[in-house]
Amino acid sequence: MSQLTYREAVRHALAEELTRDPNVVVMGEEVGQFQGAYKVTQGLLEKFGPKRVADTPISEAGFIGMGIGASMLGVRPVMELMFWSFYSVAFDQILNNAANVRYMSGGQINCPIVIRGPANGGTNVGATHSHTPENILAAHPGVKVVVPSTPYDAKGLLKSAIRDNDPVFFLENTVLYGEKGEVPDEEYLIPLGKADVKREGKDLTIVTYGRPVIQSLVAAELLAKEHDISVEVVDLRTIRPLDIDTVLASVRKTHRVLVVEEQKPFCGVGAQLTYMIQAEAFDDLDAPIGRLCTIDAPAIYSPPVEAEQLPNPQRILKAALALLD
């Protein structure tokens, strides 16, 4: 085991897959010479050369579309979006072409592409750079959506994503890039679509993913110490495919659920989750399902207020207490 940052874990996954498969290429804005806008790809150009690690112009529709076209021919591009927020300028490529081409061709084509980059608020960059589009992406059959919360998960899931034969959208988090965690020294894969119980408990299940997992674990600790409440934290890790079975098993154990997400509430991932939980475990619920989201407005700039707009341990704690009242 080594202590790696989330950033290093992603980098190691890229390096290992570049080494393993000559069809893997890393492309994106500033991924090479600049060493990555968030230094995720640091050193990869030097190690693998410009054919495998390519700097693209600021031209998301162009280069993402190019990657999708190349993937149809069997290249396995791992495309970096400097921010997932920029998906909107490549929307047609991502969600018309990558998501639909297999279906429209009657299964003749598949797109083994990974698009990765950070998707989060909390860095005071304003509304245009703080989108969390996992709900919008996952609403499109044909794609897979991964949102890892820890270095261990980030590495194992990214390696699986790169080997996957369907388009995988991999949403990281700039706030987590510097967070450290244990990562095995030997190679490992984490299958997409497998949730992880990050903390076991008996009074309440928090279902979450991404950075709110870390915040929920902090809240769970406070709830245990200060309120004698035992919280189970289920990290979805993958939004689509969705491991609803692990969620339901936890619900059947605790009978109370709080969904926490760094999403706006309307049509968010939590809306789908709460629907499925009530549909499939109605008789196991002792209370209405709770939901804690980002406060429903564009991302505010003001630094101390943005922290309050997003999920945070105190907001999660309050929402949990309200459910257990």
Binding site: G62, I64, M66, G67, G69, A70, L73, D92, M104
Partner: peptide, 25 residues
């Protein structure tokens, strides 16, 4: 033959990707 695409101009980046694939291989 890679389609057959419905959105005006949306297939052109894919075409560049095919050319990229040819060159890459």
């Amino acid at each position: 033959y890679w389609g057959g695409h419905g959105i005006v101009g949306g297939q052109i980046p894919l075409g560049v990707g095919l050319a990229y694939g040819v060159k890459y291989k």
